[in-house]
Structure formats: structure tokens, C-alpha cells
Nucleic acid binder design. Structure first.
Lengths: 163, 163
DNA sequence: GAGCAACTATAGGCATAGCAATATTCCCTG
DNA sequence: CAGGGAATATTGCTATGCCTATAGTTGCTC
């Protein structure tokens, strides 16, 4: 085992990226919890709400989050039980069903977002001078586009209009 | 619900950070699996191996990873069963025990690291020109230091010499 | 030196999420 | 229009990790 590996600039770099992400994640999770949401539930709420009609097919929701389809089934189960979402059958394809954000879901997201944005600003974007931030984001964009797991909003084709 | 929220630069920024991280994580996980390691196991192996004596008390290991103490107990259980680690009692404090990397653990890490470094380079550091990368890392360092969960190597006081 | 609070590791119970299997539906091909 | 392969959502099983409780140890205070 070569001890020098730990000083490898690649190890340093990836360590920075993940430690920054972990620190932010922890703060996000704490704030989500104040509003009765888990990180995954918040993500689902965001993805659905930013989609046309505040809805998405289960499969598409899975593709846009880090969840598997069975994971989506279960998260939607929970959120439906809590009244944040409801399922709606797709009239044109009886295999598909849509997860739709309810008024309660929108309201919950409304309550949660201001604090969320405040945390992002306090611990991330506000830590850097504007040009520094731009440079950081440019780099991240580059990496994101390279590894792109297809998670960018709108990357999947819009759902059929009749659904 | 204000649709403009989704165009908020803070949302964009945090999205970039997390999508980049998620894409890299997925690739790492696939490569770890080729070597019979989970991401958490790799992290444990790294933290221990970079520590003096290739060992760390359970509590310190928990502090340096994203795991709780009970989580560490169980990961070390598995890795000990697989022969990658062993437990060693601390002679000066009978409450504590150390997780120590075995020869098999070092060898496993040796096998895994080259591919890991290759992935970092291919999808992260190699995606950017050197000055771009420096700018990105400067920004990340700034954010990391702000949110610092105390995970930086060597941040915890060195273990008593007799342990 | 007896009592007590803090610390350390572990075990039990619980929640979450992935994989594989399943049932249903769709669509294409002949 | 019949049949087979692909797609969709769900469920069972399993693995993982957190929270809480527990047992043992330490060190401080009186």
C-alpha cells in the first residue's frame, strides 16, 4: 500500500466534492425534517411540482430522481397516505399511473422552500464572491454534463398530452 | 406555488452540485462492486488505511465517515467476516476497540484504487482544464470549510500512542 | 473509596430502498 | 386478429443503516 495515494490530487478533489455535498445534505435534511419531509420526499415533491400539470408517470419520476421504480412506488405510497400526492390513472395507457401533487403537497413545498433557499445561500452560494461562484458552477456544469445521468429537468420527452 | 422558484439560481446551483455528485457516485459504486466492495466499505477502508497504524477506534471511524456508531459496528462486522478488517482491544481503555486493516484489506484496496483514480480523472478532474479545475476546487474548498462536518483527515486528535 | 455522570460499543426494532419476480397492458409482426 | 416481446407498476425478499436502549468502563467529586 502506497501511502502517497492519499495525497493524490484526484483523491483530494473528490474528497472536497463529497465532503461539501455531505455537509450541505445534512443541513438540508435537518430543515426538511422540520417540515415533516425526508430528503427523498422533498426531491419527489420538487420534481413533480416543476413538471407540467404537477404530475409525472411513476417511471419518469424514477428516472428523474435517484430512485428505482419500486422505490418510487413506495415513496408515493407514503406521500399519498400523508395526502401530499395522489395517484391518477392514465386514460391512454392503462399500465401507467401518474403521481400528482395535491394542494396539501404544494402548500408543504411552499412552506419548506424558503428555508431551503436560505440554507443554500448561507452555506453554498453566499460563501463565494460572484465570479468565484460562476467559476465553480461552470466547472460543475461541465462535470454534470459529462456524467449526466439524464436527471436534468425536461430531459425526458414531455408526457402525452392526454395523460 | 411560484413557478419561478425553479429558475432560482440557488436551485440551479445546488442541482448542479448534487447531479454531478450523483453521477460520479453511480460510477464509483459500479467499480467498487467489481472488487466486492460497497461504497461505505471502500470509505471505511480508505479512512482506516490513511490513519496511523491502519487503525481507528470505532467512534473515530464513525466521526470520519457518514456513519453512526451502530452503523460502524455493523460495517466492521461484515468486513471482519470477510477478512478485510479485524478488531483489536485497546489496552489502555477497555471500552474502546480498534478496527485494523488486515493484509487482505490492504490488498483489496490496492486492487480497487487504480480504477477508482481512473474514474475520477475520466469524469471529473480530466473534464476541466487545469486553471478551471483549480477554480472549481477553490470554490469547493471554501464551501467544504464552511459546512465542515469535521470529516477532514487528521481533524480528530491522534489516538493515544499506547492504543 | 463510593457514587455518579460521561463515554464506548453493541443489540433490538424500525424504516427505507434495491433486485428479482409477477401480473397486466401495449404494440408490433405475421 | 393472434401471439410474442416490451413496458409498467407493484410486491416479496433482502440488505443496510439509524434511533434507542443496554451493559460495561472510566474518571471525577465528595
Amino acid at each position: 500500500m502506497d501511502q502517497n495515494v492519499f495525497d493524490d490530487p484526484r483523491i483530494t478533489a473528490i474528497g472536497l466534492l463529497f465532503e461539501a455535498g455531505a455537509g450541505l445534505s445534512a443541513r438540508f435534511a435537518a430543515q426538511f425534517e422540520e417540515h415533516g419531509l425526508s430528503p427523498v420526499e422533498f426531491e419527489v415533491l420538487m420534481r413533480l411540482t416543476r413538471s407540467p400539470g404537477h404530475q409525472l408517470r411513476m417511471t419518469d419520476l424514477a428516472a428523474q430522481t435517484s430512485l428505482s421504480t419500486s422505490g418510487v412506488t413506495r415513496v408515493v405510497d407514503r406521500m399519498e397516505r400523508d395526502g401530499l400526492l395522489r395517484r391518477r390513472a392514465c386514460p391512454s395507457d392503462r399500465r401507467s399511473s401518474y403521481a400528482v401533487v395535491t394542494a396539501a403537497g404544494l402548500s408543504r413545498l411552499d412552506d419548506t422552500l424558503p428555508g431551503h433557499l436560505r440554507i443554500i445561500e448561507e452555506w453554498f452560494t453566499g460563501q463565494l464572491a460572484p465570479p468565484q461562484l460562476e467559476a465553480l458552477l461552470d466547472g460543475l456544469r461541465r462535470v454534470r454534463d459529462a456524467v449526466h445521468p439524464g436527471a436534468t429537468a425536461g430531459s425526458t420527452e414531455p408526457a402525452p398530452a392526454d395523460c
